[in-house]
Simulated assay, not measured.
Amino acid sequence: MTPATSLFYPVEADLQILADNLKQLVGNRHPILYAAAEHLFGAGGKRIRPAIVLLISRATMLDKDITPRHRRLAEITELIHTASLVHDDVIDESAMRRGVATVNSLFNNKVAVLAGDFFFAQASWYLANLDNLEVVKLLSEVIMDYAVGETQQALNHFHTSISIETYLKKSYYKSASIIANSSKATGVLSEVSPEIAEHLYNYGRHLGLAFQIVDDILDFTSSTDTLGKPAGSDLKSGNLTAPVLFALEEKPYLEVLIEREFNQQGDLEQAMALIHDSQGIQRARDLAAHHAKLAVEHITVLPPSESRQALINMADYVLSRLY
């Protein structure tokens, strides 16, 4: 599998600048919040979302250098994403992420919630200072979408009647909205046409959906070591994803196990076995491949460049995580 970071070679120097700036953006007025930021940004992560912003910046500014506003948008995108992860870990009661301790387990839930709020607030402040109303609207929508997605997921726990359409809508809110809206916002800063901006939005939307579907498949096919969290975590918590929803169409007994919330010994293991014995995982792979293909179709409207090629390769990388 190609590591994500090797796809970023056209913006390697830009990503180094971003890494240097992130902790400065948070500032050190409060030692606990600064410690949380140092921990989070020091943990690494692939920086996929800001890398996409920087690649689109370069792919849409071929005859000139990218601006400080493009760089700041990439930083804001990572701040918003990080804030969402901090809150996500509180909601899911996660102790580990990316193989390191979460903020809530290092400090406590109160500090984690406040740290997430603080990152959202900092992102909003820097966003306002970009002085571009359309970009402000696009990124503000991302923050609203996170809350809607989390609420939908919480309300639908263990509900076997949810449709694939409902699942995809929730996945858009929780994962694809940030890539879609930040991709379009990058185009706005580059002053592309409204038509190109819409293609950039759709590239991000379909790439983000493919990414989330693949993540949901990995919950069934990867080891705990690879995931950085216990395999089958989503299913155990009642978060029904694409492989489960497709498997439910074939395996009626799966519904019984889910609706009693795996409260009998061996229920979860039996449910996992039924999913592996169905076409659920393969159908989810096909769905991810469909969205990755649509993403590529939308990004090829840009003129050829190293950065555009990296954005195309990103769709292949998302699918390659399955193998």
Rank of each mutant, 00 (worst) to 15 (best):
I17K: 15
S190Q: 07
A59I: 10
R47H: 01
E38A: 01
M272G: 01
V103N: 07
P68K: 05
R97L: 03
N109H: 12
M272E: 15
P68D: 13
S305D: 15
V136K: 10
V90G: 02
V192I: 05
V103H: 02
I91R: 04
L139G: 02
P304W: 02
R98D: 12
K184P: 10
A210G: 01
S140Y: 09
T300D: 09
E12G: 04
A284N: 02
G27N: 12
E150H: 00
A101S: 15
N263D: 08
R29G: 12
S175R: 04
R72Q: 12
G238L: 07
V90W: 12
I299T: 14
S161F: 03
S161G: 07
S222E: 06
S182L: 05
Q279C: 05
L73V: 07
Y201W: 11
H276L: 13
A284H: 05
E269R: 11
L274W: 08
M96F: 03
P194I: 06
H199F: 13
N181W: 06
V148N: 03
H159R: 13
V296N: 04
L200V: 08
S223Q: 02
R47D: 12
L257T: 08
D131Q: 14
F158W: 05
E141S: 09
D117C: 03
N181K: 15
T221V: 10
L287R: 01
S320G: 06
P31I: 13
P243D: 06
I76N: 12
R69I: 00
L287A: 01
K169W: 00
H159N: 15
A43P: 00
S177N: 01
I48S: 11
T151G: 07
R58V: 05
N132L: 07
L240F: 07
M61P: 00
V111T: 15
